[in-house]
Design a protein around this nucleic acid. Sequence first.
DNA 1: TGCTTATATGAACATTCATTCATATATCGG
DNA 2: CCGATATATGAATGAATGTTCATATAAGCA
Lengths: 105, 105
Amino acid sequence: MNDKIGSIAHDMPDEGKLCELSEFFRVFGDSTRIRILYALSKSELCVCDLAQLLGASQSAISHQLQILRTSRLVRYRREGKTVIYSLDDEHIFSMLNIGIEHLEE
Amino acid sequence: MNDKIGSIAHDMPDEGKLCELSEFFRVFGDSTRIRILYALSKSELCVCDLAQLLGASQSAISHQLQILRTSRLVRYRREGKTVIYSLDDEHIFSMLNIGIEHLEE
DNA sequence: TGCTTATATGAACATTCATTCATATATCGG
DNA sequence: CCGATATATGAATGAATGTTCATATAAGCA
């Protein structure tokens, strides 16, 4: 059984990688951010649309968007006074769907 | 554009569902739990093996396993003095893999 | 230049959460 | 029954985190 542990230990990604992985998942672990991501999976949206849609303050949304930007989960571009956000890649979409599938069992 | 918001609002799952979804993801958002899940994706393991493998205290592992049990991410059975844990379903595995793929870009 | 709207950001506060320590429960061997 | 080993759990503590409030930046318009 020490062999078992040894071989698993050998196959494990290093702690840094698994830490990054948990940080990646943690970003999905907040309902405001999940709702932002879900909304963006339907359409690109500006900050004030998101705030209105989610019934949250502009500041709260902006703070959460910063986290999503830092994690590279969203893209953004400025158009005049507004800034328009969209999902960064399709992994995000499959991620949401796997979660939803899991809950629907 | 109010139409846009309206139709997205209409398509959004209710807040409760999206809250469950974020809670589900939050479970993956801790490096100790991720390492437990990763180890269990290789083989079923008892608590003391997990503790040794991860270099964590028995108590810390036990507390995290309780969270994983509550979220139905792991199964367990008693065998004599030891309790053996394993992954509960294959969604967990695809979940980990999507995360890993995402980081490897 | 001044005013308004849209967005970003820093500080403070309250809450959540992971770990540790101490202790309880459970199983086995003698 | 008693001691040893494996696991679970409650309380306490310190760290991480989401929101709010106030304010800063940026763009458009008169």
